[in-house]
Amino acid sequence: MGAQPRPVLSVFFPLRTLGVNVPRVVVDVVLKPEILDPQGQAIVGALGRLGIEGVTDVRQGKHFELEVDEGVGDDTLATLADTLLANPVIETFTIRRA
């Protein structure tokens, strides 16, 4: 069976929400430890004002969920993460197939 065209609806609704089982890849991106994270610091400050104690540090990162075709290999995913989703100068990333 050849590749079927994706429904136009997928532009607006991820295929998964339409009940179609599509392979999913999760990429998490975090700042390297030596890079200052002003947004994380703002969150720590807000926690104090909430009355929550004991949280000494927060590092804010990015979480990407990708729907990919079966044929997309690990090398392609690594290239995608390394060149666009993360900036390797300041960030590291992890890739997992969900």
């Binding site: 200052l36 002003p38 703002a42 900036n87 100068v89 300041i90």
Partner: peptide, 17 residues
């Protein structure tokens, strides 16, 4: 230019936010 790797380093949010 930094994102293009024509220059090294990167630019992040101001430390004072």
């Amino acid at each position: 230019l930094c994102e293009s790797h024509l220059l090294p380093g990167a630019l992040i949010r101001n430390d004072h936010r």
